[in-house]
Structure formats: C-alpha cells, structure tokens
Nucleic acid binder design. Structure first.
Length: 566
DNA sequence: GGCCATAGCGCG
DNA sequence: AAAGCGCGCTATGGCC
C-alpha cells in the first residue's frame, strides 16, 4: 500500500492511494491537515509514503511528532535511475522528472546554498512545476514511471535510499547526545580558558611564543604554512611543505612545537567553543546529513562536520542518565565487500572469519598481517608505487578473481565506461574535458600534453587522466557496494529498533558514519539492541549479496561514552 | 567587503 | 615513507 502526498496551502494536503506499480487505486483526497492525516494513516495502515523529497517534507512531520516507517523519495530515486541510465547529474526534482516525462523543458534543480535557512513563508514555490499542473498528478505520474524502471537490486537500492533519507532526517532531528560541559572542560584542559573570538587561548599563545623563540625571536605565524617553510629556510632547513608528516622528520627545536600547535589549533578552529555554540543545543549535536551526497552513495553532511568528529572530542558524546550507547562498526568492510563481489572463493574463505587481514596473511604473506593489509588496501585504492606494487604480485597469485574484479573496473574507467555497485548505483560518466584529453583534442593541446601515439594509445596528460579515472572506478565498485551494504544495515536496524521499548522510551539510531552506527538506548535494552545490530548485519548481507560465505562482523560495544568504544 | 584557490588536516 | 579512494571544514592570501 502506497500513498502519494503533496502539501498544499496552509498545512493542508492532497493524498492519493496507489498500488505498488504506481497506478492510483482511488481518487485524490483533500485533507485539511497534512500532519494529522499522515499520523492517522500511518497508525492505521503504515503505507509507503510517496513524496517529492524527504528532506523537504519529513523534518516538518518530525517537528510535529510524527514518524513514518517507509517512504519512496522521488528525487533520490530519480537520481539513482538517471545515473543508472548514464545521465548522472541531470535535474532530479519531481518538476524535472515530470518535464522529461512530457518532453518539456527541464527546470534546473533549486540550488541548495550552504546557508539556505529562509523562513518558509518567504520561500518561492519550490515545486518548479508549471502553474496549471496539479502537483499530486506529477507525483503520481513520476512515481509510476519510476516503478517501471525499478526491479531486482535497483528496487532494493531505491527502498534503502529512501529509508536512509528518513533516518537522516531523524538523526538531524533527534541529535547525538552531547555534553557541552564535558566538551568545554576538555577544551579548557587542552587550550586554556575560553577567550574572546579572535584571541588565541593561552596554550596556543604560549606555543606561538616558543616557536618564535626557536626561530631566533622572529615572529612566525604558525597558522601560515608558507611562513613556516620560510622560517625553516632561514635556519638552513629546506622543507617542501609544512605538512605534519614532513615536520615530524625535521630535527629542529621548532618542529615539535609547531606540530603541537597545529594539533591544538585545529581542535580550536574546527571543534572549539565556536563549534559548540553553533551546533550543540539542548544536550544534542544536530548536524544536517545529506543522504547520497557522495557519488559512491555515502552520506555527506552540510555544516557541523558530523562525519569528521575528532577522536579526542568523542569524550563529549555521553549517554543520558539511565541510557547507554551501543556503538557498532563493521570491521574491514571494504575488503570483505570485494571478496563477496568478486566471488573469489579463497578470499571469501579468508573473509569468513574474524580477522580478514590475518587470514590473508596466513594464506599469502607468510603470516605478516601488516603486509597483507597494505596489499589489500593498495589493491582497492589502485596504489602503484612503493611496497604495495610488490605485494600485489603475491595477492594476485593467491586471489586472482578478486584482483581481476577491481582491475576490470579500472579498465572500464580508463576506457570511459560506467561501473556500478552491487545494487546498481552507477558512477558518473567522464567529463567532456576528460574525453577531449583522451582523444587528443584541443584540451590536450592547450594542456601541453603529448598527442596520442600512432596506434591511438593516449600519452602524457591523457594517459594520466585515464589512470586517474581508473583508480576512481576501481575504488567506486568497492566503496559504493560497501555503501549499499551499510544502507541496507541502517534500513533493517531502524525497523528492528522501532519494535523495541515503548514510544518515548525507545532505542534510536543517533549517529551513522560510513561503516559505524551509534544507538542511544535505555540501559536495560542495550543487550537487545546489540543483538538487533548483529542480526541486522546478517540480514543486510543476505539482502545485498545473497548467499555468500563472506561474513560482515559488527563489533559492538555498550558504553556510556563514545570515546570508550574502541 | 566578498570570492576564490590553495594548503592542511579531520574522518571513513 | 609519503602515495593511493571518498569527503567537509578552516585559515591564509591574492584578487576584484
């Protein structure tokens, strides 16, 4: 059972019941209160809600205390279908999809600026549909068309992507438990007391002074990399840059001071008091997640940097009294994904146990786990230089199917072809500039690259561009399939958690970062949540990869504080 | 004062 | 031994 829905004027809405194939099973129905209607129909029949965009509709429902179990996000699914069709990047809104359906000019998607926080009253009509088109008719027509293109894995991906959109809105709404007082204490301990904006805290001032002293008393701005390089040059120390790994090898009294400064300065700038003020309120960190924001299907965030929370700061992520955090992460997800994707029996056997790298090492690297890991990651990332190149030979000997799988993806990329994840998320096609470069066209000449050699193989810049894209597509098949798996895990886990506890006292997902989730749960339910995570992982594996010997173990920890999870 | 590229580093 | 994937965010510094 599905219900198409559009909001209309002043909180009212139009609804229409739909069959799974998208055909209407009744007339359009006008309701005075969208929120009340969704609440009532959700409780009564828990339909799959078909709407233009979860990120536009769902936050309002959440704000009114209404949650739904399932939806079909037309914009996200349109993007999946366009990508699958080799039309990556074309406008994805319902208005655009409707225009394509009718052969009419396709409106560009509304630009989502980073600070797009206008009051709703003053927003222009977001739908972008011609004035004489009933928006519900457009929703119904676009959905029906999408259902025709969705079968098998792609249908699963569409459902998972939509579930992810629901969850993303819920995560943004609920927020991650965050103790501002703990964060503040941590900052004060490391940096000194908070200062006025624009004033360095005491510890940074002190380090800056000692750096200047180490350089013979000349003022050096440790926040300016060029300044650091010049200062070392004056001392007769040539450094190619001020990167930390470079400075770590420099034997000069200023080097360790600069490293200490950089670390603290970064904490202060990126996750200091200003961040705390802006992003944490009411004991929660509320970032804005962007499902499908990365080409591989990983999520991105808009503001708040939720996917880059430094380890030290995780001390501030603390469960409410009487509650616990269940922190779960998939270990060695990407190599396991490759083993399953490639159907490499020997690698799959290695991935059937707990420590994949150790098993690979025992199989092909004389038990040397570190070398096995370098070889594996080098293969997934397309590393050609250094130690990894040697190790690849051994890996290929023992696991030919797995190596062949990523090399085929690399070749496809170099030749300008498309590659897909296990569920069918498709990489973008190469740009026009890339094609020019590869065909030795004007871009090649302008770029100073060499022309193709007589037998047509690109050289110079073209060769480099081809290899760059090969590394991208090589990694894409693995990273995007890992994202498929993670999305399936989220969808299953979200549904299982909704069956635990009681409303208002229910475990809830509060964080998701590529291959890691956090559930905030009443303490007595922690064990049940950990079980739910484990079984959701197994279910995700079955849904995405079917029968496979590959295991995707989830390490789970029940903790009061995120920092204690590892 | 805003815009942009670059450098650098946080996360997976 | 500093390359080999995907991101977001901040500070600097040149430019208009």
């Amino acid at each position: 059972m599905r219900i198409g829905v559009v909001g209309t004027w002043g909180g009212s809405a139009l609804l229409r019941s739909l069959a799974d194939d998208g055909s209407p099973t009744g007339p359009a129905e006008q309701v005075p209160d969208l929120v009340a209607a969704v609440r009532e129909r959700e409780a009564r029949e828990s339909p799959r809600w078909v709407w233009a965009s979860t990120s536009e509709v769902y936050p309002g429902l959440l704000g009114a205390g209404v949650r739904v179990a399932r939806c079909h996000d037309l914009a996200l699914v349109e993007a999946l279908l366009l990508g699958h069709d080799g039309r990556w990047g074309e406008p994805r809104s319902v208005a655009a999809a409707w225009a394509r359906l009718r052969g009419e000019p396709v409106p560009a998607d509304p630009q989502h600026g980073p600070r797009d926080l206008q009051p709703a009253l003053f927003e222009p009509d977001r739908t972008g549909l011609p004035g004489d088109v009933d928006p519900l008719d457009a929703v119904v027509a676009v959905h029906r068309r999408q259902q025709q293109g969705l079968s098998g894995p792609l249908a699963l991906l569409a459902a998972a992507e939509s579930a992810g959109a629901l969850l993303a809105a819920e995560l943004g709404h609920d927020g991650l438990p965050w103790r501002a007082d703990v964060h503040d204490e941590l900052l004060t301990g490391l940096l000194g007391p908070r200062e006025e904006p624009g004033v360095r805290p005491a510890r940074l001032r002190e380090l800056a002074a000692r750096i200047a002293e180490a350089f013979g008393g000349r003022a050096v701005n440790p926040d300016a990399p060029a300044d650091i390089v010049r200062a070392f040059a004056r001392e007769g120390v040539q450094v190619p840059s001020a990167r930390s790994w470079v400075l770590r090898k420099v034997e000069h009294p200023a080097a360790p001071l600069i490293l200490a400064y950089k670390e603290l300065s970064r904490l202060h700038a990126a996750h200091g008091w200003a961040w705390l003020d802006q992003w944490v309120s009411g004991g929660r960190f509320r970032p804005e997640y962007v499902p499908g924001g990365v080409v591989s299907g990983r999520w991105a965030t808009r503001g708040g940097g939720a996917l880059q929370i430094p380890r030290v700061v995780r001390r501030a992520v603390v469960a409410d009294p009487g509650w616990a955090l269940v922190v779960a992460d998939a270990s060695q997800l990407e190599p396991r994904v490759l083993a399953a994707l490639a159907g490499d029996h020997r690698m799959a056997a290695a991935a059937a146990g707990g420590d994949l790298y150790q098993a690979l090492a025992d199989e092909a690297f004389g038990g040397d786990r570190a070398r096995a890991k370098v070889a594996m990651l080098g293969t997934i990332y397309g590393q050609t230089a250094g130690e990894a190149a040697q190790l690849l030979v051994q890996l290929r000997q023992r696991f030919p199917a797995a190596v062949r799988y990523v090399e085929a993806a690399a070749t496809a990329g170099e030749e300008g072809r498309l590659v897909r994840s296990v569920l069918g998320r498709t990489c973008p096609p190469p740009s026009a500039a890339w094609r020019e470069l590869l065909s030795g066209g004007p871009a090649d000449v302008d770029g100073g690259g060499a022309a193709p050699d007589p037998d047509g193989a690109p050289t110079g810049d073209g060769r480099r561009a081809a290899r760059d894209r090969g590394r991208f597509t090589r990694n894409f098949v693995v990273q995007a399939s890992a994202a498929d798996w993670a999305l399936a895990l989220l969808a299953v886990l979200r549904a299982r958690l909704a069956e635990l506890g009681s409303p208002g006292d229910r475990p809830a997902l509060v964080f998701f970062q590529h291959d890691e989730v956090i559930v905030h749960t009443p303490e007595p339910l922690a064990a049940a949540v950990a079980d739910a995570v484990t079984s959701a992982g197994r279910e995700a594996t079955r849904m995405v990869f079917g029968p496979t010997p590959v295991q995707f173990p989830l390490g789970t920890a029940v903790v009061a504080c995120y920092a204690d999870a590892k």
